[in-house]
């Protein structure tokens, strides 16, 4: 690693101020950033740790029933504290990586990174969540902009994520056993006004909504409703773990399993 300083502010305002320096970078749980620094793929002058900011941690319920999660909340805390309010989301958090990763990794770090195989992007897009930063609110549909690309500006901090709670939801993850990320993961959420289906791990463009499945499931919430549908292998990821065709096939299988789990 190149040398850098670490600052541990206790308020969002102080963190935002420290991040004004263009060579400063936010540090969440470090579960992605520290390996990146070890490979010398980043050279910040300072890391601004967000994990000591009390106002960015914890799970609560908004007046409209949405689950609000502070940007520096760990996966382990979401798994525990969101379980009663939003079991589909808590279940997703409970299966990220391994226990030690879940004790450090944060929702804000995961969404800021937008790894094409990460789990949280599927929950955020599948729930139509709102990503709240120090300057604005961004709808999930506008937030994800391709592999590792998001709507975040330089120095912008995810302070909170607001998830509308569906009637039913489930995340099915086909684990890539070496990395423990999703080879393909599908988040299905049934709301009063329709079903949302978000797919991670599969596409070269990162997380996406499978709109044909959304339409079919909104009319008939059963795995059988997916029978006639096909997923194009066109923009699917090809690597040694799976071909584009294999991933396209898995999208449908995992969607069906997610629906069956809660239908």
């Amino acid at each position: 690693m190149y040398a850098f300083d670490i600052e541990r502010p206790s308020t969002i305002a102080d963190a935002v101020k420290a991040l004004k320096d263009e060579d400063a970078q936010a540090l969440g749980g470090g579960q992605t950033l520290i390996p990146t620094l070890k490979q010398r793929l980043a050279m910040p002058s300072a890391l601004i740790s967000l994990t000591g900011i009390g106002e960015m941690k914890g799970v609560c319920l908004a007046d409209d029933g949405a689950v609000c999660i502070g940007g520096a909340t760990t996966h382990a805390t979401v798994a525990k504290e969101a379980a009663a309010h939003y079991p589909g989301l808590a279940g997703l958090a409970a299966n990220i990586g391994d226990p030690a990763v879940r004790n450090r990794g944060t929702v804000g770090g995961s969404l800021a990174n937008n790894d094409p195989s990460a789990c949280y992007p599927a929950a955020a897009l599948g729930s139509g969540a709102t990503i709240i930063t120090n300057t604005r609110e961004i709808a999930a549909d506008d937030y994800f902009q391709g592999m590792f690309e998001t709507a975040l500006e330089e120095g912008e901090v995810i302070t909170e994520v607001r998830f509308p709670v569906p009637e039913k939801s489930h995340y099915q993850k086909f684990v890539q056993p070496a990395s423990r990320f999703a080879l393909v993961g599908v988040f299905v959420a049934k709301y009063a006004d329709g079903v949302r289906v978000a797919v991670t791990g599969a596409s070269e463009n990162g997380v996406f909504r499978w709109s044909e499945a959304e339409a079919a499931l909104s009319a008939d919430f059963s795995a059988a409703a997916l029978e006639g549908l096909t997923v194009s292998a066109g923009e699917m990821i090809a690597d040694l773990h799976g071909s584009p065709e294999y991933r396209a096939h898995l999208v449908k299988v995992m969607t069906g399993r997610a629906v069956t789990a809660v239908a």
Partner: peptide, 11 residues
């Protein structure tokens, strides 16, 4: 439980 190789001493 945390991985000591993926956390800074300062933290």
């Amino acid at each position: 439980a945390v991985k000591a190789c993926t956390m800074f001493a300062v933290e």
